[in-house]
Design a binder for these strands. Structure first.
Lengths: 271, 271
DNA sequence: CCTGCCCATTAACTTAAGTTAATGAAATGC
DNA sequence: GCATTTCATTAACTTAAGTTAATGGGCAGG
């Protein structure tokens, strides 16, 4: 996790935190930008498993970059049921809107032991002013979140349990793979079935039934902490999975070149 | 947030487009900022009802500010079913991520005749550079969208049809009211029941049954193009409606002031 | 080693919501 | 004026998913 900006080193990729890996999937970063992003990683912190990180109704204070482990955002209803809104995997930002939103309408809990880097959302402002490309990249991260939530809405609204479960597994696999946390057709899945149930709005029993069906159909294999996707192409076909919302971005340089009216402000500020 | 005399004058309200009204609900704008926002409204355009505005898979080119009418974003599945992701009402921005996202994974169609103001997403960059407060306000608009989508996920995942329908009606009423398009307990609803059905992931028949139940319980009244909320407090209680995600923001001025101070201390403040 | 807890599985039964279809009520068109 | 279409309603029936509950496998802790 120590900064290492030797871009030519063969270990280059291995040394970067997952957020930077994720960004490098879609756009090149220069040394300045990497340094700036590394600075956001200056305050590592660790949460135990099953710990509340952000509480419903609290004032937004910090943002967190996940570097290791799983967490999730959820909302509890009065009847005791819980709806998971999204999962946070390595490379994701918890509370990306902390800069402007006052109160968090939702809770965030860790699932596994969670390693994060805490940053003050106000840091984003100076980051954006000095590095306009990073401003756009941050916007891309937000747009990507928007697409993932839209997918979650489609899953919950109009897909059968069978397709829903398969679709979510495909997405998690895809997201983990982008940050080098999954093999070609398997990934570590440290979450119990009740998380799937609360994410997909289904009962625990029905999740169990549905996973069995997927196992019987030789589409997945599950061991206590791993999921294997045995036939990714068939899974994608069945679920109509289209993952392109996860790894596409516009050509950032041409956007900036075409619009920069006043480049003179853009002096490098690195110390 | 503070009422000021100018803001309460009827003339004041009539003259601004709904996006500005929405922003003025949570933060004061100076003349410069209002002028900048007005410039974004320089290219009015009109779409007929039931027209596709953005097509699945197309390259993002334009963004649109809705000034009048309703539209919605959706995704169609192979079996012919459609899931509505969100509605666009006056004051909303269609394609707010067009600046960075390449292809739209979803479609947007008008419901009624739709008046919009088209703007090039690249315009946002110079706007942000010259008006940092507007940069934050744009971020707030995105964070608000995020909250609304989270609510949509909770509705579809863990609420009964009865609560789901009531909750959506409350939210639409709240949103319309913010931009002066709704009375205290009634609003024009130009959308047929199949939109509700596709938004909530329920069948058309079940929407009809559910609306009847709400009518019988004297909670709503419906005429062809209007919905009346007969007992808002009871509706809020039943559905656990908490609308604060729609109209809260941090104190933008203090964010900016604090960051300028941080800037000057930046070299000493980290190691 | 047992004890207890968590989690997954399976079966039996229930229910909320889906489906199909018939009817009516408006709105639209000729 | 009537014909056509669209939309809402209601009833009868079906089904996917929920509920309850019993069973068993791991595994942590004494």
């Amino acid at each position: 996790m120590e900064p290492n900006t030797q871009k030519d080193s063969p270990l280059f990729h291995q040394n970067f935190p997952p957020l930077i890996l994720k960004i490098l999937q879609v756009v090149d970063l220069n040394v300045d930008e990497i340094n700036t992003l590394m600075k956001l990683h200056n305050h590592p912190h660790s949460f135990d498993e099953l710990t509340t990180i952000i509480n419903h109704g609290a004032i937004h204070k910090k943002s967190y970059i996940v570097t290791e482990g799983w967490a999730y955002r959820y909302y509890d209803l009065n009847d005791g049921s819980r709806q998971i809104i999204n999962f946070y995997l390595p490379g994701d930002i918890i509370s990306p809107y902390a800069l402007v939103m006052r109160k968090t309408p939702y809770c965030v809990d860790s699932i596994t032991c969670l390693k994060v880097c805490e940053f003050e959302p106000e840091k984003l402002i100076e980051l954006f002013v000095t590095q306009p490309r990073l401003n756009l990249i941050y916007g891309w991260l937000l747009g990507r979140e928007d697409s993932m939530m839209a997918e979650q809405i489609v899953r919950n609204g109009r897909r059968s349990a069978y397709k829903s479960v398969a679709h979510l597994l495909l997405e998690i696999h895809h997201r983990l793979r982008i940050v080098d946390h999954a093999a070609e057709e398997a990934f570590p899945m440290p979450i119990a079935q009740h998380y799937l149930s609360n994410a997909l709005g289904l009962s625990l029993v029905h999740i169990s039934r549905t996973l069995r069906k997927l196992r019987v159909n030789k589409l997945i294999a599950v061991t206590p902490k791993t999921v294997s996707l045995l036939d990714i192409n068939k899974l994608k076909e069945i679920t109509e999975y289209k993952g392109y919302y996860l790894d596409q971005i516009k050509d950032i340089n041409s956007i900036i070149e075409n619009t920069m009216i006043d480049n003179s402000l853009q002096t490098t500020n690195m110390a």
